[in-house]
C-alpha cells in the first residue's frame, strides 16, 4: 500500500469556512495508475496537494509508503517531497530562465548532488523522453508537449515512489495528450505509481482505476476497468 488515507477532512478557513474534503478514505497500491475525476471545485486539487505534502489536512491520517504524514516540519516535508514525490503540473511549472537540463536537474540541486552528476542524470532522463536534442533549449523555445515531457523528466529524476499529476494534459491538444498519456502508461508499466487528476474522460479511460470525487466525498466504487485496451483513441 503506497497511499492510505483514513477519514481525511480539510476545511479552508475564511469568513465562510469551506469544508472541501469530507471523510476521505482511499487506498492506492504500489504500481497503480489512478485517475481522480470530478466536477470543478469538487476538491480534486486539494486532495492532490495533501497527497503531495504541499498542504496540510485537519483530521484523519495519511500514510505515504508507510510514513505517517502528519504535523511534519517544513524541512521534513520538503525532504519527503524531494525524495518520494514527482510532480507534474498543468502549466508545466518550469523555471523560464533555466534550460531543459537545468530544470530537470533542479530537484537534485536541493539534494546536494554535484553539478556534473546532476546534469548527467538529467540528460539520461531527457534521452528517455526523446528530448536529448532539446536539452539546452529554454522552456520558451519548446512546444507544450515537449515542456510537459521535460516536466515529467524532472518528476522522475529523484526516482520517487509516486508521481502526482494535476491536469497534466489540460494545456495540451488531443494528439499531444495521447502522447503524454502513453508516456505515463509506459512509466506505469515499468512499475511507477501514478495519480492523475483530470477532467478529461479520455485521460480517465487511459488509467486503470478512476476515483470519482463529488462535493468533497469519494463516490462509492465504480467498477474497475479491468481489461484495458492497449491503445486509446
Amino acid at each position: 500500500m503506497i497511499i492510505r488515507l483514513k477519514d481525511i477532512n480539510k476545511t479552508y478557513p475564511g469568513v465562510v469556512p469551506l469544508h472541501v474534503l469530507k471523510d476521505i478514505n482511499l487506498d492506492i497500491e504500489r504500481g497503480e495508475l489512478v485517475a481522480i475525476m470530478g466536477a470543478s471545485g469538487s476538491g480534486k486539487s486539494t486532495l492532490l496537494n495533501i497527497l503531495g505534502i504541499l498542504d496540510n489536512y485537519d483530521s484523519g491520517e495519511y500514510f505515504l509508503d508507510g510514513v505517517l504524514i502528519k504535523d511534519l516540519s517544513e524541512n521534513r516535508a520538503a525532504e519527503l517531497r524531494n525524495r518520494m514525490i514527482g510532480f507534474v503540473f498543468q502549466s508545466f511549472n518550469l523555471i523560464s530562465y533555466k534550460n531543459a537540463v537545468e530544470n530537470v536537474a533542479l530537484p537534485l540541486f536541493y539534494q546536494g548532488v554535484s553539478r556534473r552528476k546532476r546534469n548527467m542524470l538529467a540528460m539520461e532522463q531527457l534521452e528517455r523522453m526523446g528530448l536529448a536534442d532539446r536539452a539546452h533549449h529554454l522552456p520558451g523555445e519548446l512546444s507544450g508537449g515537449q515542456k510537459q515531457r521535460v516536466a515529467i523528466a524532472r518528476s522522475l529524476i529523484t526516482n520517487p515512489s509516486i508521481i502526482l499529476a494535476d491536469e497534466p494534459t489540460g494545456a495540451l491538444d488531443s494528439t499531444t495528450s495521447h502522447d503524454v498519456m502513453n508516456l505515463f502508461r509506459e512509466l506505469n508499466a515499468e512499475g511507477m505509481t501514478i495519480v492523475i487528476v483530470t477532467h478529461d474522460p479520455g485521460v480517465g479511460a487511459a488509467t486503470n482505476r478512476i476515483i470519482r470525487i463529488s462535493d468533497g466525498r469519494i463516490v462509492p466504487d465504480e467498477p474497475v476497468i479491468a481489461e484495458q485496451p492497449q491503445i486509446i483513441v
Binding site: L54, A78, F87, I95, L106
Partner: peptide, 16 residues
C-alpha cells in the same frame, strides 16, 4: 513567488 513555490514543491527547504 511562483518560481519560489516551484522550488519549494520540488524540495527546496526554507533555508535554501
Amino acid at each position: 513567488t511562483h518560481e519560489i513555490g516551484i522550488r519549494r514543491a520540488i524540495g527546496a527547504k526554507r533555508r535554501n
